[in-house]
Design a protein around this nucleic acid. Structure first.
Ligand SMILES: [Mn+2]
Ligand SMILES: [Mn+2]
Ligand SMILES: [Zn+2]
Ligand SMILES: [Zn+2]
Lengths: 144, 144
DNA sequence: ATTGAAATTGATAAACTGTCTCAAAATTAT
DNA sequence: ATAATTTTGAGACAGTTTATCAATTTCAAT
């Protein structure tokens, strides 16, 4: 549908325009697939897209997902040895609860923690630009 | 001096004893160098130790630092794409403030944040096993 | 619609970090 | 000292991501 993901497509176009970058078939294709995901690795996107477009190169996936990060549509998160691209196009900042049993990822946001982080930083003379908070454990189902 | 790092050396010996592992020249050497650090990568230890012992293999450094983790003397921390081994022999749990300007790392510990983390986890049915909290920003000196 | 400069792509090489392999050496219990 | 077991060092190997570069595509200006 031409009515889906218009907002994100426009955000990408705006970023492209500002940086003398071009809109390509691949970029449209990867964006549309990416927006259907919550968190995904480049490798996983590669295999998923290979079904419909077997000649899409892995390097292009990486380049494009990194472009999405620059455009503010994605955020790279280093979970273990892999980088997952977090689809942040329709949501604000958040942190993660990760089940080490089933790999489930739950997003959360806690204002009080954010406030305390600022407090800690200030106490040490730091100005926070970003942060990363990940809680690892077992979800209800995996605790059996 | 034979009087330095005796406690940690004993902790290592105890771990070795319990797991049918042997005390080697390399393990003593790497331990003594490691205990002088706060946070260090395997690669950095490799180069540092190469000055006095050019034939120490990188694999041995990795193996030994991982051994220290098992023995509770070190903790592996994945900062970006590199693993830093945190010398936790003389300190308990803590999190990190990291200056993106000069790479300075400040350790902190905030009970209130820890408590709120538990609260968030409980609310989502999770049981936390570990967590990671890193605040990235600029220290006083780099904010100029 | 054509042209042409500039950006992009895909295939693959390379970089980078960390682990594995295995013969030789070191350790430890006997 | 002997012998079983563990460890070491060198380099091969593996997993993930980036760099290279010739061919292709985009897009703004004719
Ligand atoms: Mn997320
Ligand atoms: Mn630390
Ligand atoms: Zn689970
Ligand atoms: Zn600094």
């Amino acid at each position: 549908m031409a009515t889906k993901h218009v907002k994100e497509m426009d955000a990408l176009k705006e970023h492209l325009g500002k940086h003398q970058l071009k809109l390509t078939r691949q970029r449209e294709l990867i964006l549309s697939a990416f927006l259907r995901q919550e968190h995904i690795t480049a490798e996983a996107m590669y295999h998923q897209l290979a079904k419909s477009d077997p000649h899409l190169g892995l390097a292009t996936i990486y380049r494009t997902l990194n472009l999405f990060c620059d455009a503010g549509l994605a955020q790279a998160r280093h979970f273990g040895s892999q980088t997952k691209y977090d689809n942040v196009s329709h949501k604000g900042h958040h942190d993660h609860l990760i089940c080490t049993g089933c790999e489930k990822i739950v997003e959360f946001e806690n204002e009080e923690i954010e406030r305390l982080q600022e407090e800690v930083a200030t106490r040490h003379g730091f100005t926070i630009k970003t942060h990363r908070l990940e809680l690892y454990g077992l979800c209800t189902r995996c605790r059996d």
